[in-house]
Amino acid sequence: MNAISTTNLGKRYKSQFALKGIDLEIPRGSIYGLLGPNGAGKTTALEIIAGLRHPSFGEVRIQDQGGYTAYCPDIAEFEPWLSPAEVLEVSAGLLGRPKPVNKINDMLAMIGLKDTGARRVGGFSRGMLARLGLGAALICDPEILLLDEPVAALDPLGQHEIMDLLTNLGSSVTIVISSHDLTEIEQRCDTVGVLNAGELIHQGPLSDLLASHAQHNWHLEVRPPVTELVARLLAVPWASAVSEVSPGVVEINYLDLEKAERELPVVLASSGSRLVSLVQVKPTLEEVFLSITKNGILQAELGEA
């Protein structure tokens, strides 16, 4: 069941389309990564879902269970004359869900701002504001959490801490993360949507996206030398390309997986090579992302031409 779904959702600013009719399907309890290059429409999509912008056409359906949909912008901002604890109090209080002092303190500890004491938010760094933004959302016990670049302002340790925190929220919260940090998205998200120039060019489980772009490549590592092994592999019909990519590591591009799986051990044994490892080359999310967004841009350019 989807927590959020959109139908033909579009946004037009004068003659410019920010979103060209997208159909998002965000499963309940998932961590959904919304990817795309700058200007793809990620922030616009999140702001429409959060109710901060009106769609030019299409619709958004939020099937919550009476819970709160929280939104954290990429650059969080608060009244500079409030303390972080007061920001959390205001955040919960405005929703009519005031929290006791111990809950506020627990949340400050959770987001790593316990030691800020009575300091006013006006002196906070961008990273501290990002943490506070997340805390201000979490203190409201959200059912849906929309995060626009939540870790962009954080150092690597901070990024890891915050992403750990989000991952540990469990399936009671549906999280939508817009991010450029593809490594974190790959590690944390179970579902992804890829936007490019206002169009949704891919959506589905992350594993499906990676599998659909899997290359037919192995990295075969043996004890050098590899000359005899390479010569024998070049002779087999199921390998289209064979090369030594680093000392002792041979990259094999296979045409027929079944044949390759049956015959590789035979070739290996006949060459007298000593096996170290055999690894299926998997594309990273970054490689897939670059591949599909470049294709998208190319297709758009061809379409315009």
Binding site: T69, P73, F78, S91
Partner: peptide
């Protein structure tokens, strides 16, 4: 805008 978003969503 970011501060307005904080208030408007609450």
């Amino acid at each position: 805008p970011a501060l307005a978003a904080f208030y408007r969503t609450r």
